[in-house]
Design a protein around this nucleic acid. Structure first.
Lengths: 160, 160
DNA sequence: TCTCGATTGACAGCATACTTACAATATGGA
DNA sequence: TCCATATTGTAAGTATGCTGTCAATCGAGA
């Protein structure tokens, strides 16, 4: 591993940084980070989810997510309500303002996601995304916080 | 962008986290992070480089790199010497101990890099790496700290 | 019912990443 | 030579991302 440039780990780090830079640039009018955006989307999909389950649903670290939620609450995009059944957990809900933000920001997010892959030919974009999706899925257990979307939903009301 | 799971940005973030987790696991005997490793490798390749040029050579943020260098110096893997020509810059060199560490850690790093791609079929690994390399290169200017390997070397002694 | 083990949110501590700012120093042009 | 401008390292402030730990709470089994 003489030069670092050909190592997959190095390239994934670079791509992550590029993806974040593009996201932030496209969404700068909204002052929302990629992590905050993903959290909002998942809270909208699963209203009343708690922080631990949210961390499993988006595969983000539980400790980190705590401060992300704090910031989202400070910006009044979500609110935390005590759980009736379990005094330990706090349930997460989008506020009206959070729902509105999500509606407004989506075009910018889509533009960002498109820009990330834009330099490749359309066929190559498809190929890369297919392989990337596969690789993330197959390596799920290797990450510190594996994705547990299904399991997490088991414990919710799970109407849908 | 209803579900976050299909967004390239989300997938690159996940892969980066997976790659770091695998690196750390394989290299835990050495207590070295991926960023610290990349810095050491580049300092070995370019002895006497300064921090600003190093940041361009590996495309890491200049501010962040400051503390990375501090930690590497604290561990005695590198040393900083004042530049004879320029009182502002400090030149970076591997110590004997840093060079030894690099020699020892390389098998673990190679194992980590192989493990990252292992779940894919060999042909798919090649395809993914080719597309990823292309995409990083074509998006170079989009990142906050574009790679400037060539330019950076211009200003050095540049024996090789 | 009581107790032990697990879960939850919170916190401390470390390591990237990025922004802005600043003092010391260099450099090029008037 | 002098001065406006740029560069370098550093620092402060914010945001992930991870490791621990802890108290409060929960749940299951004796």
């Amino acid at each position: 591993m003489d030069a670092v440039y050909t190592a997959p780990g190095y390239l994934f780090r670079r791509m992550q940084q590029i993806a974040v830079a593009i996201f932030v640039e496209e969404c700068k009018a909204y002052d929302l980070t990629p992590v905050q955006y993903a959290s909002l989307v998942s809270i909208r999909t699963h209203p009343g989810i708690d922080a631990t389950r949210l961390s499993a649903v988006i595969a983000f670290d539980r400790s980190t997510l705590g401060s992300v939620i704090e910031r989202l609450e400070a910006k009044a995009y979500i609110e935390r309500k005590p759980s009736p059944g379990d005094k330990r957990t706090k349930l997460l809900y989008l506020t009206r303002s959070g729902a509105a933000l999500l509606r407004d920001i989506i075009p910018s997010v889509e533009r960002a996601q498109a820009r990330i892959l834009q330099p490749l030919k359309p066929a190559d974009r498809k190929t890369l995304m297919a392989l990337l999706t596969q690789l993330v899925d197959l390596n799920n257990e290797a990450s510190r916080v594996p994705l547990r979307a299904e399991d997490a939903l088991e414990h919710l009301g799970k109407s849908g």
